[in-house]
Design a protein around this nucleic acid. Structure first.
Lengths: 244, 244
DNA sequence: TAGTGGTCTAGACCACGTG
DNA sequence: ACGTGGTCTAGACCACTAC
């Protein structure tokens, strides 16, 4: 049964196919880790040529929403450890090789959105949120304290236990328990003096310069999901980004 | 006269075409700002189909080495102000909109590579370098002091005057005067206490937390060109990066 | 009107993974 | 052997720019 994605909107045909696929992803019709139909099959379904269908998928693969594997098929990307380590975790040792951090929970609170959280998450001031604090260690040293804020309305029935017992990453939890996939983040960095509270957790003296990373995470519909403020001790580690 | 880029190497045909084009770019056969031959023309030259030729160009356009303009043609990218502001300058006001910094020269010295410079530029310790220091201001406030190190061997006869009188950016100078095009950078960020020297230039007190950005710039052959250490006052500005 | 890049077709054959 | 994605062809027509 052919599906019509023609230019009811005016744009190119392959963009229509792309939107149709994205819709299936956003609704959870196609789930992370799942194999999508073959290109020939999809081309028939949408009544487009194989070339056009491939062009639609090309951009989704570039954005790491789909993953092609020759001989096997095309998968919906999922938040496995390596993927997250590679794309979303930017703290590396000043000397040595990147590794995965040990995460320990400090607390799990209900709270209300302050100005910064409300602005970044695009919700009203005072909206109920979860405020989670984690400690991240590399090679035995605490290098970062993460303060995570998420809208309670988007994460109903989330419990401290889910946060503490999860075997995988937090983005993995968002994806598996709530169907929310983080596809993009933006990060704002500043140098600030460590607060007494953070200094204690980082085992440094208050006032020592620390790097703060304000990261807003966005889902497939480009709506903000999470604000995470990481307070990083850059005595032996640093933030690394490759541009272009 | 058709040119042969066939599988003497084994890889896909479009990769061969891509390498042939890259070679013309790296040698300066095709210069920044210049219009390259049309796709139909190139397809004929290299004896490939238009689809294959387009695929070769697609990746170069993604890497911002070429720029397509429908109706006009395909250009070699050049380091104009907007391009650099957009891709390589990451300091933005905490509140307000991104703008171009005012650059003032502090000094222009000959020096010798220390351990850090030698490591990053992949040259021997003590190699003669230029060490340039600039002040960057946004909206009247000094926000960054940039310490730039480049290998004297790669920039022969570079003068202080060239640095001070240039109407454009430094990368533009590299490109126009030395044929070196920066296509990629990596950046490492730390929070550190401001040195007396830097504090004075930034008009803050020594020891105040400042953000340091160690940026290594690479050319089209992926060889390091420049190490730039930016010391940034993040009282009213911040570093911004979009991930993915 | 002529030339450019942008989209689209309807195939063919190759390289890879799995049973 | 079969099905998958990867490459490649040889066109056609559209949208945009410039003259």
């Amino acid at each position: 049964m052919p599906i019509n994605v023609n230019n009811l909107d005016g744009g190119p045909l392959y963009k229509g196919v792309q939107r149709a696929l994205m819709e299936q992803l956003a609704t959870g019709d196609l789930k992370p880790g799942q194999l999508i139909p073959s290109e020939r099959q999809l081309a028939t379904e949408y009544s487009v040529s194989i070339g056009t269908l491939r062009k639609a998928i090309d951009e989704l693969v570039e954005n790491r929403i789909l993953i092609r594997q020759q001989g096997k098929g095309t998968y919906v990307a999922s938040h496995d450890r390596e993927r997250l380590l590679f794309y979303f975790f930017h703290i590396v040792p000043q000397k040595g090789v990147k590794s995965y951090p040990l995460v320990e929970s400090v607390f799990f609170h209900k709270a209300m959105a302050d100005v910064e959280v409300a602005t970044r998450l695009n919700i009203a001031l005072g909206t109920p949120i979860f405020h989670v604090r984690n400690k991240l260690s590399l090679l035995g040293d605490v290098v970062s304290v993460d303060d995570i804020s998420i809208d309670q309305a988007r994460f109903e029935k989330l419990s401290a236990a889910q946060f503490k017992e999860r075997p995988n990453t937090i983005y993995n939890l968002y994806q598996e328990a709530f169907g929310i996939t983080v596809v993009r983040t933006d990060e704002r960095l500043r140098a600030e003096p460590a607060s007494v509270e953070h200094a204690k957790l980082l085992q440094i003296t208050a006032g020592t310069p620390v790097l703060t990373i304000r990261r807003t995470a966005f889902d497939m519909r480009d709506e903000p999901v999470e604000l995470r403020i990481s307070t990083v001790n850059t005595a032996a580690h640093e933030y690394f980004a490759e541009i272009l």
